[in-house]
Amino acid sequence: NITNLCPFDEVFNATRFASVYAWNRKRISNCVADYSVLYNFAPFFAFKCYGVSPTKLNDLCFTNVYADSFVIRGNEVSQIAPGQTGNIADYNYKLPDDFTGCVIAWNSNKLDSKVGGNYNYLYRLFRKSNLKPFERDISTEIYQAGNKPCNGVAGFNCYFPLRSYGFRPTYGVGHQPYRVVVLSFELLHAPATVCGPKKST
């Protein structure tokens, strides 16, 4: 009989979020998941679920829940969905086509923008091939755009693969920082350890 609540607040209220190319993952297990707390949290810009209804989450049990978190621009949030393409979905964070879970995003301009620009948040701009679902690539190898080998030196046709967002408070909404948490639900042939409040007695 599990009684402790799942530590969703640790994920959602973290002081610093990860850059999207180096997205953070927390495994959540052996706890009671009260999703209504999240669902009623006012400032969400997006709360979209795939393969599961957000209002039914509290009735369900899962083997594991993974909480992935990172920061992207407002106009990139739409790429955090199954079957998407674009710089983020291709080179930074890719969801599987059969994704079961929820994508939760909110504007973090007050936290993550600075006058003069916040350059701490990076994304991958160049990559030889697209990421596989949930693949994480933190390499900083110089990207070779031409035929000539770069030998690890940036220059003509040789690019550092990461780019900084440089968030400023005055940017338009599409270019403002958004914090994103992706909850993915794993249902294995194993005992369920993460259940909603109704199922955990």
Rank of each mutant, 00 (worst) to 15 (best):
K148N: 12
N40V: 07
S29K: 11
N130R: 15
R179I: 00
F160W: 11
Y123G: 09
P169N: 06
N40I: 06
H189V: 11
T193C: 09
N92R: 03
V181C: 05
C6Q: 05
P43T: 08
T3A: 11
G166M: 04
L95Q: 01
N120Y: 10
T193D: 13
Q176R: 04
K26D: 07
L60V: 12
N58Y: 08
N13A: 08
D97R: 11
A14T: 08
N157G: 04
Y143E: 02
N130L: 12
A22I: 07
Y91V: 05
C158N: 02
A22R: 11
L5V: 14
D98W: 08
P169K: 06
F41A: 10
N92E: 00
L38K: 04
K114A: 13
R179M: 00
Y35G: 08
Q84H: 09
L57G: 06
D68Q: 03
F134H: 10
L131P: 01
V11E: 04
P197R: 15
Y121D: 00
T100V: 14
A46L: 14
C6V: 05
P161L: 03
C102H: 03
F41W: 14
P7G: 10
P133C: 05
Y159L: 01
N13V: 05
V20S: 04
K114T: 12
D59K: 12
P169I: 04
C49D: 00
R136T: 06
R25V: 02
D59A: 11
I104D: 00
F8S: 03
G117Q: 04
E186Y: 08
N147L: 06
I88S: 03
R73Y: 04
Q144I: 07
A22M: 10
S36E: 11
C195V: 12
W106M: 10
E141F: 09
C195R: 12
E135C: 06
K199Y: 14
V32D: 08
N4C: 09
P43D: 10
V194K: 12
Y123I: 15
S19C: 07
E135S: 09
K26E: 07
T85G: 11
I142S: 03
A18P: 15
S184I: 09
Y178S: 05
H189E: 15
L162P: 00
D90I: 05
F70W: 01
C49R: 03
F12L: 10
T55E: 15
C31R: 07
N75W: 15
K94S: 07
P133N: 06
G152C: 06
V180H: 01
A22Y: 09
R25S: 04
A89C: 06
F160I: 12
N30L: 06
A192S: 12
F156M: 06
N87T: 15
Y159A: 00
P197L: 15
E10Y: 07
F185D: 02
D90E: 09
G172M: 00
Y35D: 07
N87Y: 15
F70T: 00
D112F: 03
P191C: 09
S69F: 05
N64H: 14
N107Y: 02
G174V: 05
K199R: 14
R16Q: 13
D68I: 04
K199T: 12
R136P: 02
Y21N: 07
N30I: 05
G101E: 00
R127K: 08
L95I: 12
R127T: 02
N92Q: 01
R27P: 08
K198A: 13
D34S: 08
I80A: 02
G152Q: 11
I104V: 10
L187N: 15
R136C: 07
G101Y: 02
H175Y: 15
I2M: 14
Y91K: 09
G83D: 07
Y143T: 03
V103D: 00
Y93R: 02
I142Y: 07
P54V: 14
F126T: 04
W23V: 02
E186C: 07
L5T: 13
Y121M: 09
D34Y: 05
F8A: 03
F160T: 14
A18F: 07
R124M: 00
V115Y: 11
S139D: 13
A14P: 06
F12D: 01
Y91A: 08
S36T: 13
K132S: 11
V103A: 02
N1V: 10
P82V: 05
N13S: 07
Y21M: 07
P197C: 15
A42R: 13
L38T: 05
F160H: 15
